[in-house]
């Protein structure tokens, strides 16, 4: 007997995140110089700024994740100066790109975060836990959400996401 349903349509692609830097400020006076170097102000809590070429994401109180091929590391170091430190962390991350309106439903599985809330919209970020894995989410567009996932745990989570995304889901 078949159960009628609709298929969640999601395109899931995996990319390395070698470019990601952790920019920490222990002294907020460093913010203007960093904004100058980036081309935009450092975003507030739960927000991101910029685009795929050059982006800053705020997940933590004093740390911004900076990504993108157009980022000038030397300029960033100079701008940060004595106000903080820049540390590469991209070797420990995998970037998962979820494309398709159903990304919100996908992220509800094995999770505790309200990805279905319309207020979680482009320009919003959230760090949460999904299937025991710490993930950092950035809503890039209405039908695209990027997830930064720890490299050692990525395989298991991506396999789980592919499994959920592929199967027939009964209408909610």
């Amino acid at each position: 007997m078949t159960v009628k349903g609709r298929v969640i349509v999601i395109e899931l692609s995996v990319h390395d995140a070698a470019d990601v830097l952790a920019l920490e400020l222990w002294d907020t006076a460093g913010a203007p110089a960093v904004a100058q170097a980036l081309g935009f102000a450092l975003p507030p809590a739960g927000r991101s700024a910029g685009d795929d070429q050059r982006r800053a994401m705020r997940f933590e109180p004093t740390v911004w994740l900076v990504e993108g091929a157009a980022i000038d590391r030397a300029a960033l170091d100079a701008a940060v100066a004595d106000h903080g430190a820049v540390t590469p962390i991209g070797g420990g991350l995998v970037r998962v790109r979820l494309v398709g309106a159903a990304w919100r439903g996908l992220l509800m599985h094995d999770g505790v975060f309200d990805a279905e809330n319309p207020a979680f919209a482009p320009g919003c970020t959230a760090a949460t836990v999904i299937a025991h894995v710490a993930v950092r989410l950035n809503v890039v567009a209405p039908d695209r959400c990027d997830a930064l996932v720890p490299a050692s745990l990525a395989d298991g989570l991506i396999a789980r996401w592919r499994e959920v995304a592929a199967r027939v889901d009964t209408p909610a």
């Binding site: 222990w26 962390i89 420990g92």
Partner: peptide
């Protein structure tokens, strides 16, 4: 109050 950044690089570095 310390001027310090502590970054866990266990995943980043092999």
């Amino acid at each position: 109050h310390l001027k310090v950044s502590v970054v866990n690089v266990q995943e980043h570095l092999g």
